[in-house]
Design a protein around this nucleic acid. Structure first.
Lengths: 345, 345
DNA sequence: ATTAGCACTCTCTCCGCTTGAGTGCTAATA
DNA sequence: TATTAGCACTCAAGCGGAGAGAGTGCTAAT
C-alpha cells in the first residue's frame, strides 16, 4: 500500500520517530535522529525526508521550529508495521499464567477477573465488554427454594458456565410446584439458545398451558433476570492512566464514551474480519473526538466460533503497542479457553 | 471545650471562613468577611480576630498578604459545630429511596450497589468496607451438584443474606454423598457463627469422624471459600474526585492507602464509640500524610448491634460536610435495614 | 475594645529579553 | 540527481523586573 509511496529508508525513519516519541513523549528533531540511531546520512537529508513524511500526513510538528511527532496516520503505519511479531514468548506466557490464575466458573466473576488481569499486566486500563449472548445454549436450570418468596435460580450453559441469581417473588410458591416447574423447563429447553428459551417461556405464559399460576411470575422473572443476558462492561485500572494526561476532563470523557457502550458495540460489530485477532484503534480513527489522545487495543473473545464480546485495554496513543498487542492477544486466547473449558469435564 | 477559649463572635467568624472556603476554594480576607456577611464590625476588628484564630491554630494563610483558610483544626471545629442538624428531610429521603432502589439479597452485589449509591448521591467517591464477619450466623447450606467435580455451595445466613460460590474439586463426589454431607452440616451447624462452623469442620476433618473421604476436600474448600468471609473493599466513583486536585499522584496515593485497608480497619476499630453514627475524619487527623487534602465521612453498618463494616465517602477536605453527613447517615441506616430485612420475610 | 490609616508584603500577571533547538531554503558538492 | 553544508529564521521556554492588587499588621486615635 504505501510501500510504493515511501521507500525503505523513509519507513525506517518514520518508524524511528514514532518509536522515539512513544518512549520520550517529546517531538524529535533531525539531529537526534542522525546521532542517536547511527544513520549514515546527514541531518539535512533527514529534514527533507521528514518534510516529505509530513506532507504525506504521517507526521506533524506543534510549531515551526519544533521536532516531529506522529499523527494518527503515523501511529497507524507504526502499528501495521509491527503486526507480525506480536506474540509473547512461551516463557512470558508461562510466567503470566502462573502469576495470575483465573479459576472461576461464574461468568460475572470470571469476566471481572479478566478485566482486572488486563489492567494488571498492561499497566493501562483493562476492559471486558460482554455483549448480548443470544447464542448461549441451555443445558440445565436449578431452582432452589430459599424461602417462601425467594428462589435461587442457577443456570448452567452448554459451555459449563454458571449464572445464578436470587429471585424475589411477590407471591409464595410451594416447593412442590417449584420442582414441577423446574422439571418442565429442564425437559423442554435443553439444547435451545436463551433467546429461544425466552420465547418459549413467553409462549407458555400467553397460552396458559401451565396449570398453576405461580409459573406466571417466576417465568417472567426468569426471562428477565436469567435468560436475558445483557451487555455488561467491566472496567479496571482507571487510575493507571491518570498519569498520562494533565487534563482530568479528558480522562473523564474517555470513560464516559466507553460507558455509553455505543462505541464499543460499533468496534465489535463493524471492525473485525475473521482472520485477525487483535485490532488497534488509534486516536479518533473512528471519529470519536473524545478518543483523540487515546488508543484501544482489543480482541474479540468467543465461544466456539461465535464472538460474544470484546476485551482489551485503553491507553495513551503513545503506548507500547508491541507489548500490549501481545498481551491482549494472549489474554483473549485465555478467555476463549476459559469459556470452553467447562465442556471438557 | 473551646467555648471558653473563643467567644460567640469568634465562632461565627471561624464558621464563616470555613464555609466560604468550602464554597470558593479561595482564601478569604477581612474585607470580604465584613462586606459579604453584614457583620457590624470593621475589617480591622475582624483582622484582630483572624489573627487570634490563627494563633490558636484554627486558620492559616499561605503567605503574608493572603486571606485565611482553615487548618484541619478549623475544619474540625466547623464539622463539630454542624453535627446537630445533619439529617435529610423526609422528602429528600423519599426522593432518594425512590430513585435508587437496592433490591438484592446477594451480599456481594448488595455491598457493591451501596458503594455505587454512595458515589452517585455524594458526587464524591463511595466506599463500602466489609470486614471479617466472624459473627455471621449459620442458618442453612445447600450443596448443589453441578457436575462430578463442580459443586455450587449456597450459604444462607441467619439474616437471610445469601452467599454462593462454585467449588471445583479434584476428585469426584457422588450425589448421594453430597446430600449426606449437606444434611450433616445442616443438622449440626445451625445457630453457630461461621467462625465456630469453621472450627467444627476442621475438627471433623482432623478426627476423621466422617466415614467417607470426600468430606476432606469439600470441607476444606467450604471453610476456605464460603465460611471464611474475608474483608472486601468496594470503591466506586473514583473519577468523581479527579477534578479536586491537579496532582494525579496525590489521588493515586489516596486510593493506595484505602486499598491497603489498614487505615480503614483502624478507623473502624478505634474510632467509633457507640452513640454517634456518622464520623468525619479530616485530612491527616489520623496521621496518614497521604490523606492531607482529603476527608472521609463514614458510618459503621451492623447486623443487630454488631458492627460488620464501614461505609462512606472520600472527598476533598473542603467538602459540603452538612449534606454529605446527612447522606452517609441515611445510607448507613439503609444498609442496616437491608442486612436485617431478610429476617422479616 | 474598636477603628481608621498607612506602610508593608507577597502573589500574580504582563512584558520584554535571551537562549537554543529545530526548521526550511539555497547553493555547493559528489 | 541526490546529498550536504551553511545560514537565516522561527518560536517555545525560561528568566527577571515592573506594576497592580489583595490583604495583612501595626500604631495611634476614638
Amino acid at each position: 500500500m504505501f510501500s510504493s509511496l515511501i521507500n525503505k529508508r523513509k519507513k525506517r525513519i518514520l518508524h524511528l520517530v514514532v518509536h522515539n516519541y512513544i518512549q520520550t513523549a517529546r517531538p524529535i528533531g533531525s539531529n537526534v535522529i542522525c546521532k542517536n540511531y547511527g544513520l549514515k546520512i546527514s541531518s539535512a537529508t533527514v529534514r527533507n525526508i521528514l518534510a516529505d513524511l509530513e506532507k504525506e500526513g504521517y507526521l506533524t510538528h506543534p510549531y515551526t521550529s519544533a521536532g516531529r511527532l506522529p499523527t494518527d496516520k503515523g501511529y497507524r503505519f507504526y502499528v501495521d508495521s509491527l503486526e507480525e511479531n506480536n506474540q509473547l514468548t512461551v516463557k512470558e506466557e508461562m510466567l503470566l499464567a502462573a502469576r495470575y490464575k483465573i479459576n472461576n466458573y461464574e461468568l460475572k466473576e470470571m469476566l471481572w477477573q479478566l478485566s482486572h488481569l488486563l489492567s494488571l499486566v498492561s499497566h493501562y486500563t483493562g476492559f471486558v465488554f460482554s455483549v448480548s449472548q443470544e447464542k448461549v445454549i441451555f443445558k440445565h436450570l436449578k431452582l432452589i427454594h430459599l424461602s417462601n418468596k425467594k428462589i435461587l435460580a442457577v443456570f448452567i450453559t452448554q459451555a459449563g458456565l454458571i449464572k445464578h441469581k436470587v429471585i424475589c417473588l411477590r407471591s409464595t410458591i410451594t416447593i412442590k410446584n417449584l420442582k414441577r416447574m423446574c422439571n418442565i423447563l429442564n425437559d423442554e429447553m435443553v439444547g435451545f439458545t436463551v433467546k429461544e428459551v425466552r420465547n418459549k417461556i413467553l409462549d407458555k405464559i400467553k397460552k396458559e398451558k401451565i396449570a398453576y399460576k405461580e409459573f406466571l411470575e417466576l417465568g417472567k422473572e426468569l426471562n428477565e433476570q436469567i435468560f436475558k443476558i445483557k451487555e455488561e462492561l467491566y472496567l479496571e485500572g482507571i487510575s493507571n492512566i491518570l498519569s498520562f494526561t494533565n487534563n482530568h476532563q479528558r480522562v473523564e470523557s474517555v470513560f464516559n464514551i466507553l460507558q455509553e457502550r455505543k462505541m464499543l458495540s460499533y468496534l465489535l460489530e463493524e471492525k473485525f474480519d475473521k482472520k485477525e485477532n487483535v485490532k488497534v484503534f488509534i486516536g479518533n480513527e473512528n471519529s470519536y473526538p473524545q478518543m483523540n489522545d487515546w488508543s484501544i487495543v482489543s480482541a474479540v473473545y468467543k465461544t466456539g466460533d461465535y464472538p460474544i464480546g470484546l476485551l482489551g485495554i485503553v491507553g495513551p496513543k503513545r503506548m507500547e503497542y508491541s507489548r500490549i498487542i501481545a498481551e491482549v492477544d494472549y489474554i483473549s486466547r485465555m478467555a476463549n479457553k476459559l469459556l470452553e473449558q467447562g465442556e471438557e469435564e
